[in-house]
């Protein structure tokens, strides 16, 4: 079954023809060329594919493209403003919260979802919220620091700068 879907992706209206079985992540990566959203597993657990649909974090590997018809999708490509990183992205950078970068888009999208629902999360709450995001590189230590910093900056507080990093 071919179907034409129309949706908003990163603020721009797009249309595409998909099969019933086309996953949202396939539409994004293969048809719209938005390859920042990754696929790291086939059991909906790794979270590398997390995007926002109508402002809520979802796993784009577990949603059909047709289910996003008429909805608004935000991917990692739409988070920064031009060359200016979002405070959460900046916090990931300050805290070396990414290594190979593969899980990173999903981590950032989940982090933003967390802060939307809980602007001042504790370390425990951050760790629990990441239940659906696997990272094999960082041991999560710096991701947890980054999300705490990103949340603080989004609340209007200064960045803690745990590592004393400076602009290069």
């Amino acid at each position: 079954m071919q179907k034409t879907v129309s949706l908003t992706v990163n603020g721009k209206p797009v249309s595409a023809t998909v099969e019933g079985r086309t996953l949202l992540v396939q539409l994004l990566r293969e048809q719209l060329g938005l390859t920042g959203t990754h696929v790291g597993c086939d059991t909906s657990q790794c979270g590398a594919c997390v995007v926002h649909v109508d402002g809520e974090a979802v796993k784009a590997c577990t949603l059909l493209a047709v289910q996003a018809d008429g909805h608004s999708v935000l991917t990692i490509e739409g988070v920064a403003t031009g060359d200016t990183l979002h405070p959460m992205q900046e916090a990931f950078r300050n805290n070396h919260a990414l290594q190979c970068g593969f899980c990173t888009p999903g981590m950032v999208m989940s982090a933003l979802d967390l802060v939307k629902n809980n602007p001042n999360p504790t370390e425990r709450e951050i760790r629990e919220y990441l239940e659906g995001n696997l990272c094999r590189c960082t041991g999560y230590h710096n991701i947890v620091l980054a999300i705490a910093e990103g949340a603080a900056v989004m609340r209007g507080e200064p960045a803690p700068n745990v590592y004393g990093t400076a602009a290069e």
């Binding site: 997390v50 974090a57 979802v58 796993k59 989940s110 979802d113 919220y129 239940e131 659906g132």
Partner: peptide, 9 residues
């Protein structure tokens, strides 16, 4: 239940 993204759907 599940994880936050699963709970959203």
């Amino acid at each position: 239940i599940g994880d936050p993204a699963v709970r959203n759907r």
